[in-house]
């Protein structure tokens, strides 16, 4: 799969996405929002997560295996996209990248990104979240980047999912974060096309 491919809906191949960072960054929620949006696309997602004894600070990851039917194997084995939001996840988290896949990292929080046979996009995700008003929405900025590049769910479905799964008082902020993520992805795509 290439980042430019159309909706997963239109072909019967599976997609694997990993969200990795540290506990408390909201990555489980990002995965949940995307999986929620995919229901509207008629797709099936299997979502698994790492269970660590600590709730905050340790390695946290959420994997999505997406397909037109119930995925045969529900756990990620070769990720098309990996989102890395913390250095703590950089090594283990990147191991399952598919050759030619894409790893999106946070410029500030992943100072030493992994290297290998994949496309690396180091983006100012957290900085953008801070500029919007709250570093804690970096997970939604990242989700915007990811979905814009991977084209898994429609933008409307994702916006609806953000609305449905985030607290009402942070809804506007989160929608703005999503928009910023899309903007960042579009700029990146334009740059690589140029």
């Amino acid at each position: 799969m290439t980042p430019e491919s159309t909706n997963a809906n239109n072909n019967d191949r599976r997609h694997e996405i990993r969200f990795a960072g540290s506990g408390g960054q909201g990555l489980q929620l990002s995965a949940k929002i995307l999986a929620y949006a995919l229901i509207g696309e008629g797709l099936y997602a299997s979502q698994s997560q790492s269970y660590e004894p600590t709730s905050r600070g340790g390695l946290s990851r959420a994997d999505l295996v997406i397909g037109p039917d119930e995925p045969d194997f529900p756990l990620a084995t070769a990720a098309d996209f990996i989102l890395l939001l913390d250095q703590v996840a950089a090594n283990d988290g990147a191991k399952i990248i598919k050759p030619g896949g894409t790893i999106i990292t946070d410029q500030r929080l992943v100072p030493s990104p992994p290297s290998g046979d994949f496309r690396l996009l180091a983006l100012p995700i957290t900085d953008t979240a801070i500029a919007i008003g709250n570093p804690r929405i970096a997970n939604v900025v990242a989700l915007g980047v990811l979905n814009a590049l991977a084209a898994l769910a429609s933008r409307e479905a994702l916006e609806a999912a953000v609305g449905a799964l985030t607290p009402a008082k942070f809804r506007e902020l989160n929608l703005e974060a999503l928009k910023a993520g899309y903007g960042m992805a579009e700029a990146e795509t334009a740059e690589s096309a140029a």
Binding site: L38, I39, Q47, S48, Q49, P74
Partner: peptide, 9 residues
Amino acid sequence: EIIGHLVET
């Protein structure tokens, strides 16, 4: 445990 904690559509 995997199936217990797995979230699927």
